[in-house]
Structure formats: structure tokens, C-alpha cells
């Protein structure tokens, strides 16, 4: 174990820049590296991504490893897995942190098993145990009904962190660091599963994860047409529409509208929860909203234990009146 050293972050890239989650991961990485008194390095994997190395340094990395190859233009499990396996075997970080994103969820466990160890996904707390120097990996279990803290004696200790846990660090443009380019050396035989196409489902408007107001509906909405009414309210408030899992499973909305532990983590200023019961798995994804309003016909629905304001009633009657009154009250 002695030969493993330092903290490594996997810097996910989205649309040619470092998304918020990568900056948050950098913040966690810097803190842990400082606590260990060791270096922080960042890994950038993609095509034409070298220009982002300085950004990663500004966010705290001492060293940035860039793996640049046209074959890495889009995330593909086998290619990225093979690259990350090489980078980790070569650099031997004590800790590797990824974001709990579609990529992190896919890549982290496979990489861990390839390196003959295991990972902890969806961490909400990371700290160094002052005695053992091991990484304390805290994650919700039982849908969020409990929080477990794990350690592992095997290196690298691999984790993904949930997004929106803390604000990303302010970039420091004057920070110095080293940029090292590594060869992807991809063996075509290593790529078994192939990506045939990627389809973006964005109904326009504000992205759920960026919205400051979210109007979310559940099973009780009952149909795609029902969600049109939520869409209308969201448009009025310049917010986004979200949903519980059953609403997405029924295809009343696209799956990427799902809020919760297996959907998206959101923290808007206002979360309006309509005809959803407030299961722990759903609340884990939205309980950090500044304010929550609930409309539900069942006075015993758990969502009322988390809401600031609530109306007990049929949403089909409550919502239109709520919307019309808001229209009256809102400027413009």
C-alpha cells in the first residue's frame, strides 16, 4: 500500500468545458490531498481536450494528465475503461474520485473490479481518518434512510461523489501546475461494446439540474396530458419540469426528468411537488431544495413532512387555481 500516493480526480468533460460536477470533484480532491499532505492530480480524457488542462490546474490540480485521442471523442465504456486502467496502474493514486454521473456510475465500478478492488458510489461525505489515513467514504443506503461510512484497505480507494454537495472552488488563474500527455494506446480489440448512437432528449427550456424553480409531478398526475399543465406552470415561473420515477417509467416524461437517487440530484430555490408521495428515494434527490411546496390529496403523504407549505386536495382542482392566481400576482 505504501507505493500508492496522492489523490487523483477524473475530470469529466461536457460540451468542451469542465461542468460543475468536475469542479466540485476538484474541490473534494484538493481538500483530501491537503489533509494527506500529498499531491492532487487530475485526468482529462477525450479528443482535443488539452486546452482544459489549465482550467484543471486553476481548480487545484498540481499535475494534469491528458489522454487525447480522436477515438475518445465520446464516452464509450470499454475505451475509457482501458485508458483509466492504464493511467491508474501507472500513477498509482491512493484515492481516485469521480462524479456520480452517468459516466461515473458506469466507469467507477468496472474500473475498480478491473483493478481487483471495489468502489463506493454516490458518496455524500469524504474525509481522511486522521489515525489510519484511510478515506472515510460516507454514502446513503436504504434509499437514503441511513448513511453508511466505509473504509477500504485496498488501493486505490475509488469513490464517486454526488453532485451539488458543495459549491465548486473559485478558479485561480495564477496557479501553476504540470501538464503531462499520456498516450491512449488503444487496442481496438479492447473495445467490445460499441456505441451506435446517442440521442439527446431535451424538451428545450431550462435544464432540470440548473433550474432555480422545479415543478415536479408523480404517479398521481396520471397522464402525459396531465404533465402539460405542469409544463405550463413551469414556463410561467421560468422553471423546469421534473418527475418521480413512475411518471418517467410510464413515459409521461423522458427518463432524464427523473429526480432522485437513480435520477437527478437537484437543489432549486423552490421545488413544487405535485401528486407524488415523497418516497425516500425521491426525496434524497430534492430535499436540499431551499423551499418545498406539496400538493397531494392524501394528508398522510410523507412529502408533507418535508414541505414548507402544502395543500391537501386534488391537484386537478388546486393547480389551475394556483397557476391563475400566480399569473395575477407575478409582475409582467
Amino acid at each position: 500500500m505504501a507505493e500508492y500516493k496522492g489523490v487523483m480526480t477524473y475530470c469529466e468533460i461536457a460540451e468542451g468545458s469542465l461542468p460543475s460536477i468536475s469542479r466540485e470533484v476538484a474541490g473534494f480532491g484538493r481538500k483530501l490531498a491537503d489533509d494527506l499532505g500529498e499531491e492532487l492530480c487530475a485526468v482529462l480524457v477525450g479528443s482535443d481536450v488539452g486546452n482544459l488542462a489549465q482550467d484543471a490546474i486553476g481548480l487545484g490540480a498540481d499535475t494534469v494528465y491528458v489522454v487525447d485521442d480522436p477515438l475518445l471523442k465520446e464516452y464509450q465504456t470499454d475505451a475509457y475503461l482501458s485508458v483509466m486502467e492504464k493511467v491508474v496502474r501507472k500513477m498509482m493514486p491512493r484515492i481516485l474520485i469521480l462524479g456520480q454521473t452517468s459516466v461515473g456510475r458506469d466507469l467507477a465500478p468496472m474500473l475498480a473490479f478491473r483493478l481487483d478492488t471495489t468502489a463506493t458510489l454516490d458518496c455524500v461525505g469524504l474525509a481522511i481518518d486522521p489515525g489510519t489515513k484511510l478515506l472515510l467514504q460516507t454514502k446513503p443506503v436504504f434509499g437514503g434512510n441511513a448513511q453508511a461510512t466505509f473504509t477500504s484497505d485496498f488501493c486505490p480507494q475509488i469513490v464517486t461523489v454526488r453532485d451539488k454537495l458543495m459549491p465548486p472552488p473559485e478558479p485561480d488563474a495564477s496557479k501553476q501546475g504540470e501538464v503531462i500527455t499520456l498516450d491512449a494506446g488503444l487496442d481496438p480489440a479492447a473495445i467490445r461494446a460499441s456505441l451506435l448512437k446517442r440521442v439527446t432528449e431535451n424538451e428545450g427550456g431550462v435544464r432540470l439540474e440548473d433550474a432555480s424553480i422545479i415543478v415536479s409531478g408523480g404517479r398521481g398526475i396520471g397522464s402525459a396530458e396531465g404533465f402539460d399543465q405542469l409544463q405550463e406552470l413551469a414556463a410561467l415561473l421560468k422553471g423546469a419540469v421534473g418527475a418521480s420515477r413512475p411518471a418517467c417509467d410510464n413515459r409521461w416524461l423522458a427518463p432524464n426528468r427523473q429526480v432522485g437517487i437513480t435520477g437527478k440530484i437537484v437543489n432549486p430555490d423552490l421545488y413544487i411537488a405535485i401528486a407524488l408521495s415523497g418516497s425516500i428515494q425521491h426525496l434524497s434527490g430534492c430535499a436540499q431544495s431551499k423551499s418545498i411546496i406539496a400538493i397531494n390529496k392524501d394528508p398522510e403523504a410523507p412529502i408533507f413532512n418535508y414541505a414548507d407549505f402544502g395543500v391537501v386536495g386534488d391537484w386537478k382542482k388546486v393547480l389551475p387555481a394556483f397557476r391563475d392566481k400566480l399569473k395575477e400576482l407575478l409582475p409582467g
Binding site: 460516507t138 446513503p140 441511513a146 448513511q147 461510512t149 430535499a287 395543500v311
Partner: peptide
Amino acid sequence: RVNLVRLAEPPRRKTECRIIGGETPE
């Protein structure tokens, strides 16, 4: 490969929900 070292209640959102009423749902 991993050891459980702690299990805790999650932090809960503390709120007092104010139920807003009316003569009718509207």
C-alpha cells in the same frame, strides 16, 4: 474489500409544514 465503520441516521430536512386551506380546493 470494504469495512463498514459507521452507520448513522441521515440528516433530515427540518420543516414545519403549513397546510393552506380554503372553502374549496380552488
